[in-house]
Amino acid sequence: MSRPRLLNREEASSATLDRELLVRIHDVMVKARVLEERLIQMYKQGHGYFWIGGPGEEAFNVPLGLLMKKGQGLDSDYLHAHYRQSATLLALGEEPIGALRQMKNTATDPYSGGRNFAGHFSRREWNIAPVSSPIEVQYAIAPGTAMAQKRHGGDGITIVTGGDAGTAEGDFASCLVWSSRPANPLPILIIVTNNKWGISTTADGQHGETRISDRGRAFNIRSKTINGNDPVEAWRELKEAMDYVRTERKPFLMEAMVSRLYGHSSASGANFVANEVDCLKEFEAKLEKDGVLTREQMEALRNRYTEELAAAARQVRDEPQPAPESIWNHIYAEGK
């Protein structure tokens, strides 16, 4: 799979993106949606204990992954994500079968060896920090990698993502404080994907701030709220914010308004909700209208991924579970 070419400034600021890139974004969005739907199905068929993931955030998460500088170490970007980031991983080129393995908690699960929930990615060779379940802790951790990158020089940045309800935790404030210390401002893109929900609690009863991004202003952090349901807007805004963080070596706070298409997690049923914007559906309508792709082409693509993932799920079904004595493995790192 080839990476999309990066657009130059004029192209990036134009109203749309070039055709090749639109097709590429669409491709990964479909793949990510199909992956999440497969994971939900696995859960419902008893091939996993719990589902949580990112259907509804693809329009934002795909551009994020495509724009990241992938690799290991300080010259590449670090991602400190929460559990709705599958589309970003796929955009980076990750094979979807890993997510199925984690769903089925097999020994082959590449992220945790059958130890952690679905959507809890980790991949050190690409600077993907392990996703952990406690809400918001990644915001306290991310300044550390950003600080190392600042000292190192170069243009690698740190990206941290999480939901809106979690910003009530002190760790979000920690992130703003530590990223904007006058003694050492950090190259960090602080992202909040705002779906207006906690689990069942809506933001309007709990949050007095007009926008979450307004909180950046108190720290002189450049901030913006964007429509995360539009992949073209997401691409352009992310590109601009990332360029700023890369070159200025300063923080940026981005709030992206997104949808939650299958509820919070399997704990709330994981059923499709019809009353939220479906970014994929809207994007496809636009692609069709603009003559970028035909309905048939898009359906063929979805069918192809659906078949591929169904086959992958069958493969994973027969893979071994971790052995009981493996609980003792990797408590400590030795001799690296």
């Binding site: 306290a140 951790i141 550390g144 990698t145 950003a146 002190g170 920690s174 530590w178 210390r181």
Partner: peptide, 25 residues
């Protein structure tokens, strides 16, 4: 040495991040 904000969670979190980046904090 450097002085940090008065924020213990920030201190431990940043140490974890620095360690992820191989800095031996």
């Amino acid at each position: 040495t450097w002085n940090s904000p008065l924020d213990e969670r920030g201190i431990i979190g940043t140490a974890i991040g620095l360690a992820m980046a191989g800095q031996r904090p």
